[in-house]
Amino acid sequence: MQPFTELTAVAAPLPLANVDTDKIIPARFLKTIKRSGLGKSLFAGLRYDDQGGERPEFVLNQEPFRGAEILIAHENFGCGSSREHAPWALLDFGIRCVIAPSFADIFHGNCFKNGILPVVQPRSVCDQLMEDARLGANARITVDLGRQVIVRPSGEEIPFSIDPFRRHMLLHGLDEIGQTMQRTAAIDTYEAARMSAKPWMPTISA
């Protein structure tokens, strides 16, 4: 996983609440067995018309937001399905950070696993940042995970906080599975104890 340390980039304002995973990537694009290549289908319903042409009014079809690496949205971003295709599509498009007043739980967790930083900020701050973002290419926003601050184009700093564990993993781009595999002895011990405590536990064979 690519580490996330500090990002200075164009931010795209998406003033919508309850952006669900079907909106982020509709189900018809899930028939892939790969992680890559989903960026072109990101927000397909909002981004393209029925003939597949771009809708000019949609923010990611406008300059400089085509190159946005930060997305700012409203409440409950990422609700709906558990599909990791949603963060994969964001990442493949180039989004490395989403700022919103709240996130749906599974999506929030999935972001960290893919090197995307979800940052929670009050609605009023998100609205302010959207105003900043609308200034376009000259108004880059910085997200510094090391210092846990967002730096507005004016230079004003807004603090945020991320779980220490997740922050550590993200800063160093660590592979969670590799970390857990180092605890195999503890898992073995647990399994043995479980076996004697719940000898009735059935196993599955097809």
Partner: peptide, 19 residues
């Protein structure tokens, strides 16, 4: 019982655990 993403599917397949 709860839903997980694909990275976590891999984590469970490999370790039978989740963080």
């Amino acid at each position: 019982a709860f839903g997980i993403g694909t990275s976590e599917v891999e984590h469970v397949l490999a370790t039978q655990t989740l963080l």
